[in-house]
Design a protein around this nucleic acid. Structure first.
Lengths: 248, 248
DNA sequence: TCGTAAGTGCGAACACTGTTCTAAAGGCGA
DNA sequence: TCGCCTTTAGAACAGTGTTCGCACTTACGA
């Protein structure tokens, strides 16, 4: 089949689409793909980050992405690792390790929440990306500097990670449910109001304790809840520090 | 259009499909749909629970389900609530509330894990189903019996729920990733072995602490990890019990 | 007993998804 | 200039959740 190749300067013959006209033609790279994916994530949430959507944003087709990324799962992991690069890490001060660990947790939360529901990717994922490992290293360094035994620190980094993931997911899931075009805050307010009504209407004979504390349960103070859990965990970790191992 | 209705006893005329031959014709109910969905869940995981799959299992089409269930999300919530019905709840004994709370957490974990990745549904979901509320009621009852203040108990039930969800999800996600037809245990072993190698090969200059505790980090004792986190949380909750409020 | 209204069942179709196949295009060393 | 090989990308495949509209069953008032 002698399909003549178009020579430069020649117009495209009729019936033959001008191959994408004059696209910017920035060569596709993994970095460009991940950046674009994060832009879509920030704008429309994780659900909107589809291969097609990212490709379209780059002015190409979905198949082109597969040369730089093995699939959607890898893309999501790469996105998470890139986001993790924004987490500011502390220099360990053994005297203040507990407060530093809490601050780091707050910083992780801040970064996660600032990228919509990216935390969903982190759930149940063993960190392998360089920046994710930097974060784990920082957590472990703080605990070890504080005298937390290796075995405890190993489990604690896991527990803390689970807590951070679950918190971030919980915090963004209703935000993510907001119908496109609606104001997320107003939607959330309305949505949550329905739950308050529902709980208030629950039969008191079946749920005597619960109905007796509807106010406490529905007064959702996200930050307070986070600080409560964080304090639980850090205090628990600290309780495993053997006095002999304590620095100073 | 005079389409003659088939009279009983008459054979179906040629060219007219015998409407589903002689299906069991159990009338479709929400209960039957949820039961079937859980059967698929147990056999093939949450991902396999699609509207089409459930409908097929019931010998019908996907459209038929929408008369009894508003959509996939509602079906998943109904599945979770039905699973929650299997959780055995304790009768509060104020003297042993901490151990009872731990036992209840273990029981929830047992039931969740026995239904593959059902815990994913629970993530970030405000419980509304009757059985899910029974479980919340039981947790709150235990804490209140132990003298935990209302405000603390309200936050604690949330933290504990997050922990249970995250743990169950973490525990089943690799199981869920097992390619169909392969032995999950062998796959998991192989999969995890790769991580051990990866961590061992990490550059020690960038990750000095982490590389110094690869053994502790990769010796994944799921039960140990769970018990560690559970102990952290329950001890933390107990620390908020004011002596004056303690029973006895 | 009949006629009709309401509601269920469900095949087909719509607009999506991740991924793969295949062929074209581009850059690069020889 | 030629040939090769990676990158690009259109089209297609096998799925998905959900909606539409029509056939059918059932219930009920006349």
């Amino acid at each position: 089949m002698p399909t003549a190749r178009p020579e430069p300067g020649m117009p495209t013959p009729p019936g033959r689409r001008p191959r994408k006209a004059a696209a910017p033609r920035r060569p596709l790279t993994q970095e460009a793909i991940v950046e674009t994916a994060i832009r879509v994530l920030d704008a429309e949430g994780l659900e909107a980050v589809t291969m097609r959507r990212v490709a379209q944003e780059l002015g190409t087709g979905p198949a082109s992405l597969y040369a730089h990324v093995s699939g959607k799962d890898e893309l999501r992991e790469l996105m998470l690792d890139r986001v993790a690069a924004d987490i500011m890490l502390p220099v360990p001060d053994p005297e203040r390790w507990q407060e530093q660990l809490k601050d780091l947790a707050r910083e992780i939360r801040r970064v996660y929440v600032s990228h919509r529901d990216i935390a969903m990717v982190s759930m149940g994922l063993i960190p392998t990306g360089p920046h994710l490992l930097d974060v784990a290293e920082a957590q472990l360094a703080l605990m070890r500097a504080g005298g937390v035994p290796k075995k405890i620190a190993a489990m604690a980094v896991d527990t803390l990670g689970m807590f951070l993931d679950a918190d971030a997911v919980e915090g963004t899931i209703y935000y993510a449910k907001t119908p496109a075009g609606e104001d997320p805050h107003a939607f959330f307010e309305e949505y949550f109001g329905q739950f308050k009504e529902y709980f208030a209407a629950l039969p008191a004979d079946r749920y005597p304790v619960l109905t007796g504390m509807v106010k406490e349960l529905t007064d959702a103070d996200d930050d307070g809840r986070f600080e409560f859990g964080l304090d639980l965990i850090v205090r628990g970790i600290a309780s495993y520090v053997e006095d002999g191992e304590r620095p100073g």
